[in-house]
Simulated assay, not measured.
Amino acid sequence: MGNILKGLTSLFKHTDINENLKEFEATPDAILLDVRTKEEYKSGHISGSINIPVDDILEIEDKIPDHDTMIFVYCHSGNRARRAVDKMKMLGYKKAKNIGGIVDYKGLKVL
């Protein structure tokens, strides 16, 4: 019963992209991955991020071949990032983390 409650609680837990970006910055060799569309990425993204849209996430194996790389994944609200992380874990990426959505980001966006 405890695992069920823990799982339900995590469904409603808000992921703070700003706190997670501090962890990204403190993690050597980590990658910041934006899984929004190319158009969304061009309209403004977090500095230092790379873009692989969630629908093209299988391309990750060409761009990030090391499955042990720490990858911090964001999108607009966190939903696509969650889907991307799930797919990445199925591909064997052990350290992919959904850090939420750029909608809550408090820093400057790069155009």
Score class of each variant (00 low, 15 high):
residue 99 I to K: 04
residue 82 R to V: 10
residue 22 K to L: 05
residue 46 I to F: 01
residue 66 D to A: 07
residue 79 N to D: 02
residue 74 Y to N: 06
residue 40 E to A: 12
residue 24 F to T: 08
residue 98 N to H: 09
residue 31 I to R: 03
residue 30 A to K: 08
residue 18 N to K: 03
residue 90 M to K: 12
residue 39 E to Q: 05
residue 42 K to T: 02
residue 80 R to S: 05
residue 30 A to N: 06
residue 36 R to T: 04
residue 96 A to F: 01
residue 96 A to S: 06
residue 23 E to M: 02
residue 38 K to E: 15
residue 86 D to Y: 08
residue 37 T to C: 13
residue 5 L to N: 14
residue 81 A to E: 08
residue 45 H to T: 15
residue 39 E to G: 02
residue 14 H to Q: 14
residue 51 N to I: 12
residue 103 V to L: 07
residue 18 N to M: 08
residue 66 D to G: 08
residue 95 K to P: 09
residue 39 E to C: 02
residue 86 D to P: 03
residue 83 R to M: 09
residue 110 V to G: 02
residue 106 K to S: 11
residue 70 M to Q: 05
residue 60 I to M: 15
residue 61 E to D: 09
residue 26 A to Y: 00
residue 101 G to N: 15
residue 107 G to K: 06
residue 86 D to L: 10
residue 71 I to Q: 13
residue 10 S to M: 15
residue 63 K to I: 08
residue 57 I to S: 07
residue 24 F to D: 07
residue 41 Y to Q: 04
residue 78 G to T: 02
residue 7 G to Q: 07
residue 77 S to F: 01
residue 99 I to N: 01
residue 72 F to Y: 09
residue 64 I to E: 13
residue 72 F to E: 00
residue 46 I to H: 04
residue 106 K to W: 11
residue 107 G to H: 13
residue 96 A to C: 04
residue 51 N to Q: 09
residue 109 K to V: 15
residue 13 K to D: 14
residue 84 A to D: 02
residue 27 T to R: 01
residue 35 V to Y: 11
residue 72 F to I: 00
residue 80 R to W: 05
residue 42 K to V: 00
residue 64 I to K: 02
residue 22 K to S: 01
residue 17 I to S: 03
residue 51 N to W: 13
residue 30 A to R: 10
residue 12 F to K: 13
residue 13 K to N: 15
residue 45 H to F: 07
residue 22 K to M: 03
residue 106 K to H: 12
residue 93 Y to K: 00
residue 97 K to L: 14
residue 51 N to Y: 12
residue 83 R to A: 13
residue 89 K to N: 04
residue 106 K to I: 13
residue 69 T to M: 01
residue 41 Y to E: 06
residue 77 S to L: 00
